[in-house]
């Protein structure tokens, strides 16, 4: 329906779009932050509830089981980020030459929508992996109700 001549001159912004599943790419973009959010809320709620109202455990039996549960939540969240990183890396490899390179190395064009989203997914997965891992570190350093 568009001004076809202008669109032809402009080219399609995602010529490699068929090489990567958009559904999986969007999943790789959104799963790590969603996993991190659920992990943060669950960890916070469980850690707080068990130690309520402060540093005294609500139930003397809960901290040991709690620690294992928190670790399990972290492992699931880390696995989500890791899976997103693996998929994003493959998507990036499939679309790395999506648009012609610029003549000047100083200009980072980020051209090619598929490649752009793949790079984003790679970075998002990595950052949230690091964030969840940092949270997990606290479980090994601090007492559950410190």
């Amino acid at each position: 329906m568009a001004d076809e001549a202008s669109l032809r001159r402009a080219g399609h912004p995602a010529p490699h779009r068929n090489r990567v599943s958009i559904g999986w790419l969007l999943a790789a973009l959104f799963a790590p932050p969603i996993g991190w959010s659920l992990h943060l809320i669950a960890n916070y709620a469980l850690a707080s509830h068990s130690c309520y109202p402060g540093s005294v455990p609500k139930s003397p039996t809960s901290p040991a089981g709690l620690w294992a549960l928190l670790i399990a939540i972290d492992v699931v969240s880390l696995a989500i980020s890791l899976a997103a990183i693996v998929f994003a890396y493959r998507a990036w490899q499939a679309s790395i030459r999506e648009m012609a390179q610029h003549e000047s190395p100083m200009v980072e064009t980020g051209e090619g929508r598929t490649r752009f989203l793949a790079v984003w997914a790679l970075l998002i997965g990595s950052l949230f992996f690091l964030t969840v891992a940092s949270d997990s570190a606290a479980l090994w350093i601090l007492k559950t109700c410190s």
């Binding site: 943060l40 960890n43 850690a47 707080s48 130690c51 964030t131 949270d135 606290a138 601090l142 410190s146």
Partner: peptide
Amino acid sequence: LPGLALSFFSAV
């Protein structure tokens, strides 16, 4: 609030 809970938010 409990220290462990605070540490999650400190990290972020």
